[in-house]
């Protein structure tokens, strides 16, 4: 795993280094960050599931909008917040 980590994003304000071409979901997973949000009704913990854009489990706050983390490529300075659309906890 000699990948060069050239991109810096923040996750809930904390820095995370990742490789060019990674998706937000894979950058988080590579860092063992599996929990992405709580489900809106049951408040049960959720992480990415299909990694192909279909299930919407990875839809979290990215640069102020709700985006699918598994379909969003990392960019320098990106701000990621681990919460979903209906999730108003801080």
């Amino acid at each position: 795993m000699s990948e060069r980590l050239e991109i810096r994003l923040t996750v809930n304000g904390a820095p995370l280094a990742c490789a060019v071409g990674q998706t937000v979901a894979s950058a988080l997973l590579a860092n063992s960050s599996y929990l992405l949000r709580l489900s809106p009704n049951g408040q049960t913990p959720r992480g990415a599931f299909c990694m192909m854009g279909a299930c919407q489990e990875c839809a979290i706050q990215i640069d102020g909008g709700i985006r699918r983390a598994c379909q969003t490529e990392v960019r320098d300075g990106m701000r990621v917040e681990l919460r979903g659309a209906a999730d108003d906890r801080g």
Partner: peptide, 23 residues
């Protein structure tokens, strides 16, 4: 099956093809 850490099989192929890695 909603526990974080449970993925589809397709997820594994997608990540291996795109990144030559598996979590």
């Amino acid at each position: 099956w909603t526990t974080p850490g449970v993925f589809g099989l397709a997820a594994a192929t997608a990540v291996m093809k795109a990144e030559k890695a598996l979590f």
